[in-house]
Design a protein around this nucleic acid. Structure first.
Lengths: 337, 337
DNA sequence: TTGAAAGCGCTAACAT
DNA sequence: ATGTTAGCGCTTTCAA
């Protein structure tokens, strides 16, 4: 293993000079720099991460905590994680992957050991048990998601309230008066995951403002659950012509069932989804949808965090504006017979 | 920050004693151990990861490299990653997440810097460019997936050849004679991802042995692509009664299209899928399938790696035996009219 | 613009 | 069963 000392010797300079060439923290004459860089290349030198961390008390690692919940839609999580990893690398950080198993202890372990310089928490609940720890620690952190109390925290999330409002507005503009919301599994609401409740809030508020009737039904996803839910919806509100779906596992079943019942999309009923682009474009009917901007969320989270690590940046709630893309699943409400 | 020295002082013992209490590498009297543990708790001591890594030249970190390919089915990757993370923790290791961006350089960086003690590579191609580096390095590693040349490498994967054979056998037993294989997107084959080709090989070999006719068509997934593919299949082989699908994005479209065409599953055609359990059970027809044992793959990969790190364990190819679960999508071939 | 040297906090010989 | 101590490889003051 090649050490910095060996590089220094090979280049005929002191250890500190090599270190400074590497870090750029003080000016080095061009000739010296070149000699050093040459030696580094020739010897195949790689700075030792442990030594560096010890001496500088910075690990250049960001911990990414992803609780594993079976009821979460995985691809979005993965997409965020990948964006976080890529973003982190561009700032010189690596990602330490923490999954849910350990719970809050992981926060303690990582902060305490100096394993990571900072952390990003995904899938934050309204009243997340990791938050108290986070506030105590002086470790910089960013949440992806929005807890009930954001005091002293930095959060990045899609503005789900605005997302709900946007879906309702779109359907209202098309003349729909009776709207049904196919929501996430009941467990998601019970857990008080913020995003589901906030979407619902946005839907309801805007519906009320616009004088629309709104029916909300959680749905587990899958065909059987969707069939039951759909039957109830049309039972209770036979005039329903607009659907908002926020549950990827319910999208395709819904479309299939509507087809089976002879309800044409978008001639008889319109469907608006809150889902990843891929789901929207690969569905059997190309879906009008609001996408969860996973990539952007990941990128922004890293940016916020790096700003904090650099002493810039402050606690802030970043809510990304939703964008609705009109596709083939929404159209004018049918004229009453 | 509390240091080991402070703990030692507080407990009235030497630093090494504290270290040994922590590592268990030499016997400590019960009373001493208790005093030390007491001090550790009282002071809230956490060993510094960097110092530990420097002194022991072990980071207790395993790098997990997941190339991000848009054409890979993400949930399986994620499930493996989560299993790897959980498994690693039970052995005292953390996971460093490396995504594709960096390519082979990441291998160099991680091994060179001592950031990780070992690595797990996912989504290995037949002729993967990371392999030469891996063989050079003395860093222990395990591949999830099977390259063309496994010399000097440890690999864990589902036995896709046996998987293919199993699917054919199941259909053959039910009396099907003409089988169509809906494969992964063409790009997957072009990239020479082992699993797709191996499955195909297993399918073909067994079909030949059993005297069945087999047609293979890659498919991009989604409705339009599937419709085109399906049309071709029935055009070329009107007597097709058995389908094997190895492309999650094609499963639902296939079922929907068959329904549309008035072909009942399983009365007119049988469908066998190679996909995660969740896809199989949540589809509009509960699918007879061979599951990709993601959890087990992750767990086994960690076990192999830890064995290597502990000096036990050797290069070995672990192929997990496929298991076919019969559900509602396969049945006896229809009697010729 | 460069060097010398004192740690960073821990591990693991080597002693006893 | 426990203590002493010499590093591990790097960063960063302090000096020149």
């Amino acid at each position: 293993m090649v050490t910095l000392a060996e590089v220094a010797q090979h280049a005929g300079v002191s250890a500190s000079t090599v270190s400074y060439v590497l870090s750029g923290k003080r000016s080095i004459s061009t000739t010296t720099r070149q000699r050093v860089e040459e030696s580094i290349r020739k010897l195949g030198y790689h700075p030792n991460a442990g030594a560096r961390a010890l001496a500088s008390s910075r690990s250049n690692i960001i911990a990414l905590m992803i609780p594993l919940r079976t009821d979460m839609y995985v691809p979005v999580m993965m997409e965020i994680a990948i964006a976080v990893a890529a973003g982190a690398r561009t700032h010189g950080y690596d990602i330490l992957l923490l999954t849910g198993e350990e719970g809050p202890d992981a926060v303690r372990r990582v902060t305490g050991s100096g394993l990571a310089d900072a952390m990003i928490l995904m899938d934050v609940e309204l009243d997340d048990e990791r938050l108290p720890l986070l506030r105590d620690t002086h470790q910089p952190s960013v949440l992806i998601g929005l807890p009930a109390d954001t005091e002293g925290l930095t959060c990045v999330d899609l503005d789900f309230r605005a997302t709900g409002a946007l879906c309702v507005e779109h359907l209202a503009q098309l003349g729909h008066r009776d709207i049904a919301v196919i929501g996430e599994a009941a467990a998601v609401y019970e857990r008080h995951t913020g995003f589901a409740e906030r979407t619902l809030d946005g839907l309801r508020t805007r519906a009320r403002e616009l004088g629309l009737r709104l029916l909300h039904r959680p749905c587990e996803g899958g065909y059987d659950a969707m069939a039951a839910t759909l039957a109830r919806v049309f039972d209770e509100r036979p005039d329903t012509t607009g659907f908002v779906v926020q549950n990827e596992a319910a999208v395709e079943p819904l479309l299939a069932l509507l087809r089976q019942q002879g309800r044409a999309v978008p001639e008889d009923v319109s469907v608006v989804a809150v889902c990843p682009e891929q789901v929207a474009t690969q569905a059997s009917v190309r879906l009008t949808s609001v996408a969860v901007p996973a990539q952007e969320m990941g990128r922004r989270a890293v940016e916020q965090l790096v700003a904090k690590l650099d002493g810039r940046g402050s606690d802030e709630v970043v809510l990304l504006a939703p964008e609705l893309t009109v596709r083939a699943s929404s159209g004018p409400a049918p004229v009453a017979p």
